[in-house]
C-alpha cells in the first residue's frame, strides 16, 4: 500500500462525467479497486489526506452519499466536516456564492457539494481555490454514483464494453441516469432508456440513446437492469397516474426481470421504493447488486478523493 497519490487524474475537480475520457474513467475505477481491498482490511486507515480538510456541503438531505463521502475522507486521514444547509435558509444564486466565499476563507482542501439546482456545483467551483466534487446537482450529474455503478458492474461482469444496460424509470428527473448514460457509453456499453414517455426527457433520442416505453422490449437481452427511484411527488397523477399503475407496467418484479438475460444483474442507486419501482423479491434476490453498490460507493469516493489530492493547492 502506497501513501503517495499517483498522478492518475488530470482534473482539479470532479464536476461530472461529461468531459472525462475512457482513460480517466478506467484510471479511477482501477484506483477504486484498490480501495475496496483497503476497506476490507481490519486497518482501514490511510494517510493520503492527513492534515487535509474536507467539507461536505449538502444543500439537499442525503444519508447514503454524505456518509459515504464522510467515511471515505476519514479512511484517507482527512478531517471531515459536515455542513447540512437547510434549503429554506439558502436563497440561491448570490447566497450560494457568498457561502462559497465564506467556506473558501476557512481554507478547506476538498469540498463535496450537493445542490438541488443543476449547475450550482459548477458555479461554486469557480469561486473557491480548492478541489470540488459534485455529489449531485439537480437533475444534471451525480458522477460518483455512476462511477460506483460502473465499478460494481465491472467487478461482476469482468468489463463494461459490449454490455447492454437498461436504465429504467424516472430518467427525466435523474442525475444518476444522466451520469450513468455518459459513463457507460464512454466505456462502450449499449445504453437503453426505458420509461413511460412522461419520464423521458424530450429530445433524448437526439443524444443517441435507444428509448423504450415498453419494459418487455426494453429489457429484452439486457445484461444489467438499472432501476431509478421515483420521487413521491411525481407518483400521483402528475407524471404517472399512481404507484399501483407504475409498478404494474414499470416496476421490476421477477416476471419482468425474466425478460432480460438469464444472468442479468439488478442495480438501484437507493433509497428504494419497494413495491413502486422494484419488488422486494428482486431487490433482495440473487440477481441483485444493490448491497454491493453501497460498498463500492465508499471505495469509489476514496479513489476520487485520492485522485484529486494530487492536484491540491499548496503542494
Amino acid at each position: 500500500m502506497s501513501d503517495t497519490p499517483r498522478p492518475v487524474f488530470p482534473h482539479r475537480h470532479l464536476l461530472g462525467i461529461e468531459g472525462l475520457s475512457a482513460l480517466d474513467l478506467t484510471a479511477l475505477l482501477d484506483l477504486a479497486d484498490e480501495q475496496v481491498e483497503v476497506s476490507r482490511q481490519v486497518e482501514k486507515k490511510k494517510s493520503t489526506l492527513r492534515g487535509r480538510t474536507q467539507i461536505n456541503l449538502f444543500f439537499e438531505p442525503s444519508t447514503r452519499t454524505q456518509s459515504s463521502f464522510e467515511i471515505a475522507g476519514k479512511r484517507l486521514g482527512a478531517d471531515v466536516m459536515n455542513m447540512s444547509v437547510a434549503s429554506s435558509s439558502v436563497k440561491k444564486g448570490e447566497t450560494l456564492v457568498d457561502t462559497a466565499a465564506t467556506l473558501n476563507a476557512m481554507r478547506p482542501d476538498l469540498i463535496i457539494v450537493r445542490h438541488h439546482a443543476a449547475g450550482a456545483v459548477h458555479l461554486l467551483a469557480q469561486k473557491v481555490d480548492c478541489s470540488v466534487v459534485n455529489a449531485g446537482d439537480g437533475a444534471h450529474e451525480h458522477p460518483t454514483q455512476a462511477l460506483l455503478d460502473a465499478l460494481t458492474i465491472r467487478r461482476n461482469k469482468g468489463g463494461i464494453e459490449g454490455l447492454t444496460v437498461a436504465i429504467c424509470g424516472d430518467i427525466v428527473h435523474s442525475r444518476v441516469a444522466r451520469s450513468n448514460m455518459l459513463l457507460l457509453a464512454t466505456l462502450g456499453a449499449r445504453v437503453r432508456l426505458v420509461a413511460p414517455s412522461t419520464l423521458l426527457p424530450p429530445g433524448i433520442e437526439g443524444l443517441g440513446f435507444e428509448t423504450f416505453t415498453d419494459m418487455r422490449r426494453g429489457l429484452d437481452g439486457a445484461d444489467i437492469v438499472m432501476m431509478l427511484r421515483l420521487q413521491r411527488e411525481r407518483m400521483n397523477g402528475s407524471f404517472v397516474p399512481s404507484t399501483k399503475e407504475y409498478f404494474r407496467f414499470y416496476g421490476l418484479d421477477q416476471e419482468k426481470l425474466s425478460w432480460a438475460k438469464p444472468d442479468a444483474l439488478v442495480m438501484h442507486p437507493g433509497p428504494m421504493n419497494r413495491g413502486v419501482e422494484i419488488s422486494s423479491e428482486v431487490a433482495d434476490g440473487a440477481q441483485s447488486l444493490i448491497r454491493e453498490q453501497v460498498e463500492m460507493g465508499v471505495a469509489v469516493r476514496m479513489a476520487v478523493l485520492e485522485a484529486l489530492a494530487s492536484h491540491l493547492p499548496n503542494r
Binding site: 397523477g237 402528475s238 404517472v240 397516474p241 399512481s242 399501483k244 399503475e245 404494474r248
Partner: peptide, 15 residues
Amino acid sequence: LTKGLLGQEMAEIGL
C-alpha cells in the same frame, strides 16, 4: 382521463 374528472391528476390509463 383525470381522477374525479377534476382535470388535475391523470387517471390510471394503463390499468
